[in-house]
C-alpha cells in the first residue's frame, strides 16, 4: 500500500489505528537506523523512535501532504534526535563530564556494535561532529539522500547543507588519516 492510500485509510472513520500500524510497520526500521546513527546507543534510539511515532500519531490528522510522508516522518525523527542530543549534552555539561568522551566509551562498550576497527574509528569520528552536521553527514553519506531532500528534512538551504557536509567530510577525513 502506498503512502497516499495509507493516509486515506487513516482518515476513514475507525480505521486510524490500523492505518497507523501499517505506517509504523513500513517505516519503523528505516527510521530506527537513521536515529541509531545519530545517537549510537540502542536504548536511546529505541526511546526516540517510539517518541517520534507517538508525535507523528498526534500530528498526522493535521498533516497537509506538502511533503512526502516519509520525509515528514524523517523530519520528526531527526528533530527528536537533535533534541535528545541537546539535552544529553546539557546533562553531561551539568555533571561536568565530557559528552564526546562518554559517546566514545559507549561505542567501545556497546554490545550491539558489530563493526571492525576501521568502522569503529569512523563511527567515533562521526560522533565528534556537532549534532546537525552529523545529521547532514549521515543522510548524505549513509542514506545517499539528495541535498534537496535533506533540505526539506532539516529546513536548511542547499548551500548551507553542502558547506556543512564539506566541513564534516574534512574533519572525519583528518581523524581517520591520523588513526588508521
Amino acid at each position: 500500500m502506498d503512502d497516499k492510500d495509507l493516509l486515506i485509510l487513516f482518515k476513514e472513520e475507525g480505521k486510524g489505528n490500523y492505518a497507523f500500524n501499517l505506517i509504523v510497520e513500513k517505516y519503523s526500521e528505516r527510521l530506527y537506523w537513521h536515529i541509531r546513527k545519530m545517537v549510537a546507543s540502542h536504548d536511546d534510539a529505541n526511546d526516540i523512535l517510539q517518541n517520534s511515532f507517538i508525535k507523528a500519531w498526534s500530528a498526522l490528522p493535521n498533516f497537509r501532504e506538502e511533503s512526502k510522508l516519509f520525509t515528514w516522518l524523517y523530519r520528526i525523527a531527526t528533530n527528536e534526535s537533535l533534541t535528545f542530543l541537546k539535552h544529553a549534552k546539557l546533562r553531561s555539561f551539568l555533571s561536568l563530564s565530557d559528552y564526546s568522551k562518554q559517546v566514545e566509551n559507549q561505542l567501545e562498550a556497546d554490545p550491539w556494535f558489530d563493526g571492525d576497527n576501521t568502522q569503529r574509528i569512523f563511527r567515533k569520528a562521526i560522533m565528534t561532529l556537532p549534532s546537525k552536521q552529523r545529521a547532514v553527514f549521515n543522510m548524505r553519506y549513509y542514506d545517499e539522500m539528495k541535498y534537496d531532500e535533506i533540505s526539506e528534512v532539516l529546513n536548511t538551504s542547499v548551500g548551507a547543507l553542502k558547506a556543512s557536509y564539506h566541513h564534516a567530510f574534512q574533519k572525519i577525513q583528518k581523524i581517520l588519516k591520523a588513526s588508521i
Binding site: 509504523v24 510497520e25 568502522q119
Partner: peptide
C-alpha cells in the same frame, strides 16, 4: 556496524 536484539522490530511495533 550496529545490531539490534532478536525480534526487536516486531516488539517495537507492538509497543508503539
Amino acid at each position: 556496524p550496529f545490531k539490534v536484539p532478536d525480534g526487536y522490530f516486531h516488539n517495537v511495533r507492538m509497543n508503539i
